[in-house]
Design a protein around this nucleic acid. Structure first.
Length: 561
RNA sequence: UGGCCCAUGGUGUAAUUGGCAACACUCCGGUUUUUGGUACCGUCAUUCAAGGUUCGAGUCCUUGUGGGCCAACCA
């Protein structure tokens, strides 16, 4: 965005250091490596922005690589959704890759490993292997198959590939050190037998490589210079390097794995398992429910790619545990929408007012500014008539000086319209005000330039003409969880913190200019908040989602009482 | 009872690599305003603790404390 010198994060420091030590800027290359087994969420957005942001900063290519080594969990549907979301965020990958593209190369290298006596076929159950593996505080011991001959290993591995065995009968393990303080170095499994079809290679393979064997070698094949992942992979780095050492050509770029802390957002969860549970138990209506922290949910809620990118940029990247308050995300949508969202008037909790000195049957079309923050946004016309809706909260029979909205005997300005005075009101049998009778100052029309129109009146209200108003379903969303970190309580399940009031669906009354609004159209309902037309919206039945409310200092004053 | 990682306002990141702790959000207070919005101004820290090295330590060293990660044929 700006060219002003910006503080570097620790990853950028590492890259700058590499550059300083002679690494060629042209050899810089990054990748975003999702597993296609779920939808992308706000946490992924941070990683996407980091990797693609680095690509933009250094003018380096960034691959989109699907880490698809587990055919049991991965599907084409997710591949498509991930590609759509990355594009929507505004990024373009250099090439689209799949770890499965490298299955043959990975197999060949595994054979080399066996020939070098650095891998062997183990034929025990996973339980037996787990016992021999030891614990973080006790070393493991060598298993009975560890010293099979190279020829026997070669033969068995080939037979595994040829489908001669059932799942679980044999695995290929790297021969490293069963006593290592790093559990991952205790002869990690690199291949397992899996008789399931893969979304890309179908039934070509019945053995599949494990993550550790695949990831670093894939980085190497793609000549990725800096392979960035989250902190829980830090102990994997030693193994990542060990695997690289077995195959590295000194003339090629050696990928470097570095780890950063995953970003945690308050009042939500992001694990795929938990998100899935919310969907399956019907707490939300699908992966793109506007309350979900998924990219598709945020999009449907009305968030803009820019706001998410700015958010990611602001929170930065580091190595310590964190819990970022959603209010920061909300700040960034408001900041962007304030600049680009057209202003319109809508009344969500209507109270009828009648302007008793305004001619019956008369309609005036008043000019209204579309966006005071954007002088290219122009003007539109809104109809004014004798009967209007205002918000119930904007009228009180009596109130103190701090309440500068409509009260009996006092004046208020109608946005883009006239100054009115409340004269009287009528109530139902319960004492609820159901109508307010007002008079208007005919010379006070907004924009007319008259002395009356320039009068200082403290309050300005939004409104809609009752007979011109169009009805719409308006979905008011709130945080999905009442707790800021719902899944970190030892004694409580995150489901216990689901906010029962996360969705309130009401009927709103909109100015007629919104009649043909199409899905994903974003507007500001003046004095209320930012709203976005939902994908379920039609011309017959408009549906709006509240993206986020406006900051409301009046609500704060009220709360203090 | 092992190994590794981390510790800077309420929150998230900075600090020219040993030289006046900065930016954003939130909160609170104020100015402007035909959105109680926006914009603008102001308040909010002896950098986890204790020692040490140094003219000088958020930064280096030691110890402690607190938090996290590691025992899937997941990634």
């Amino acid at each position: 965005m700006s060219d002003s010198p910006k503080a570097l994060n620790f990853i950028e420091h590492i890259i700058e250091e590499d550059l300083k030590n002679g690494f060629s800027k042209n050899a810089l290359r990054f990748r975003f490596p999702p597993e296609p087994n779920g939808y992308l969420h706000i946490g992924h957005a941070s990683s996407i922005c980091l990797n693609f942001g680095l690509g933009e900063k250094y003018n380096a290519p960034v691959n989109l690589r699907f880490d698809d080594t587990n055919p049991a969990k991965e599907e084409q549907e997710y591949v498509d959704a991930i590609k759509r979301d990355v594009h929507w965020l505004g990024y373009n990958w250099d090439t689209e890759r799949y770890s499965s593209d490298y299955f043959q190369q990975l197999f060949d290298w595994a054979v080399d490993l066996i020939k070098a006596n650095k891998a062997y076929v183990d034929s025990q159950s996973s339980e037996e292997m787990a016992i021999q593996k030891g614990t973080p505080t006790e070393p493991g011991i060598n298993g009975p198959y560890r010293n099979r001959t190279v020829d026997e290993n070669l033969e068995l591995f080939q037979a595994m590939k040829d489908g001669k065995f059932q799942e679980g009968e044999h695995v290929l393990r790297a021969k490293i050190d069963m006593a290592s303080t790093n559990m991952l170095m205790r002869d990690p499994i690199i291949y397992r037998v899996l008789h399931s079809a893969h979304h890309r290679t179908n039934t070509d393979w019945c053995i599949y490589p494990m993550y550790d064997w695949t990831h670093g070698e894939s980085d190497y094949i793609e000549q990725v210079s800096h392979s960035l992942c989250t902190l829980e992979f830090l102990p994997h780095r030693e193994l990542y390097n060990w695997f690289l050492d077995q195959i590295i050509d000194k003339n090629k770029v050696r990928p470097k794995q570095r780890e950063f802390a995953r970003r945690n957002l308050s009042h939500t969860v992001v694990s795929k398992r938990k998100l899935l549970k919310l969907v399956e138990e019907g707490v939300v209506n699908g992966w793109d429910d506007p309350r979900m922290p998924t990219i598709s949910g945020l999009r449907r809620r009305g968030y803009t790619p820019e706001s998410i990118r700015n958010f990611a940029d602001t929170i930065g990247i580091a190595k310590r545990d964190n819990l970022i308050d959603v209010s920061l995300l909300e700040f960034h949508v408001r900041e962007h929408l304030n600049k680009v969202a057209p202003r319109v008037m809508a009344v969500l909790d209507p109270l009828k007012i009648v302007i008793i000195n305004y001619p019956e049957g008369e309609v005036e079309w008043l000019s209204a500014e579309n966006n005071p923050e954007d002088n290219l946004a122009g003007y539109r016309e809104v109809p004014f008539s004798r009967e209007l809706f205002i918000e119930k909260a904007d009228f009180r029979e009596v109130a103190n000086k701090k309440f500068f909205r409509l009260k009996l005997g006092k004046e208020v300005r109608l946005k883009n319209g006239y100054i009115i005075k409340a004269e009287s009101c009528t109530k139902d049998e319960h004492g609820n005000v159901i109508e307010v009778q007002c008079t208007y100052d005919k010379k006070s029309k907004s924009g007319s330039g008259t002395a009356e129109s320039l009068r200082k009146v403290k309050g300005t209200l939004h409104w809609v003409s009752t007979k011109h108003a169009i009805e719409a379903e308006v979905r008011l969303y709130d945080r999905l969880f009442t707790d800021e970190s719902p899944d970190t309580h030892k004694d409580k399940d995150f489901m216990d913190f689901v906010n029962p009031e996360s969705l309130e669906s009401i009927t709103g009354y909109l100015e007629p200019s919104l009649k043909d609004a199409k899905p994903l159209h974003r507007v500001q309902f003046q004095r209320l908040g930012y709203f976005c037309v939902d994908k379920e919206s039609t011309n017959e039945k408009l549906v709006f989602n509240r993206t986020v409310g406006l900051r409301d200092s009046w609500a704060k004053i009220e709360q203090k009482k």
